[in-house]
């Protein structure tokens, strides 16, 4: 056993570590916290923000509050960033069509321009993740194998290994990713919409997010070498096919075999 390890067992060592830890935490916070705030790069004009505010008051303020401060069920939108608005509105989840366990993908109700204006307004309320640029969304730029590993550990438990989606508690679910645009996938990772946690650039770097997109792009394009994929749902659908297709075919042949010829 090394000398360091031996000394670690000293009762004072724990106290020292805790003290040190507290000190470092305080300093660390103070030093690093503001750095996340400059994630938003504001390129929007004042006019856009003004238009966005009108849209916000008309479409969002009933739930999120006049100043986007949030109410009851609806969270505060201060600091959620343009990416969050672009995702929620761009996939039709917001404005919320009807209440339910979770907001679901729906027909988009605002135009692209209106979405951009609304995003600009919300971004102006407080710094947050911005809409990703095209270069981080290019599947060609990512490493699909690395993306597969990141996806498996961070995403597959909810979205299934093939991105087919899965169940969460009380009627909520992680959606199928097959038809979600790369921009929205990226935005979901940085903003953590609804039940989904946030995967900030500090724990999964933009390059790694591109890897994930590369992986999803690959499995989308990948033909199923074994034949029909059966919804990529695994053993449940395989079991049903064995019963319904396999057994029906075989019993059909058996009935023919046992029937008297005319």
């Amino acid at each position: 056993m090394s000398a360091l390890a031996a000394r670690r067992r000293h009762p004072l060592a724990t106290a020292l570590i805790v003290l040190l830890g507290l000190l470092v935490t305080g300093v660390g916070y103070a030093a690093v916290m503001p750095s996340t705030a400059d994630a938003s790069t504001s390129t929007a004009s004042a006019d856009d923000i003004e238009q966005g505010k009108k849209l916000f008051l008309a479409n969002c303020s009933t739930c999120h509050g006049i100043d986007a401060e949030g109410r009851n069920q609806a969270p505060s939108l201060i600091g959620v960033g343009a990416a969050s608005v672009d995702f929620q509105v761009g996939t039709g989840r917001m404005p919320l069509a009807m209440s339910g366990p979770q907001a679901q993908e729906a027909p988009v109700r605002l135009s692209d321009e209106q979405t951009a204006q609304l995003s600009a307004y919300v971004a102006s309320l407080g710094a947050g993740p911005s809409i990703p640029s095209q270069d981080v969304l290019d599947p060609e730029a990512g490493d699909a194998s690395k993306g597969a590993m990141i996806f498996r550990t961070n995403c597959a438990m909810c979205h299934n290994a093939a991105g087919a989606g899965g169940a969460l508690t009380r009627g909520k679910f992680a959606p199928n990713l097959d038809d979600v645009s790369y921009k929205h996938i990226y935005e979901a990772m940085v903003t953590g919409p609804q039940s989904m946690p946030v995967f900030p650039d500090t724990t999964i770097t933009p390059d790694e997010k591109t890897d994930v997109i590369a992986y999803l792009a690959t499995i989308r394009e990948t033909p199923n070498p074994g034949g029909m994929a059966l919804g990529k749902l695994g053993p449940v659908s395989e079991g049903l096919v064995a019963w319904i297709v396999g057994l029906t075919l075989l019993i059909g042949f058996a009935v023919w075999l046992g029937a008297k010829s005319s």
Partner: peptide, 28 residues
């Protein structure tokens, strides 16, 4: 010939940390 079964290439190799949604055994 027609139906994929147990596409392990989609699941990836075993590692105790990750897991896929829809973790199911074979029907029996």
């Amino acid at each position: 010939a027609l139906f994929t079964i147990n596409g392990i290439w989609v699941y990836g190799p075993y590692d105790p940390s990750p897991i896929g949604a829809g973790a199911q055994p074979d029907f029996y």
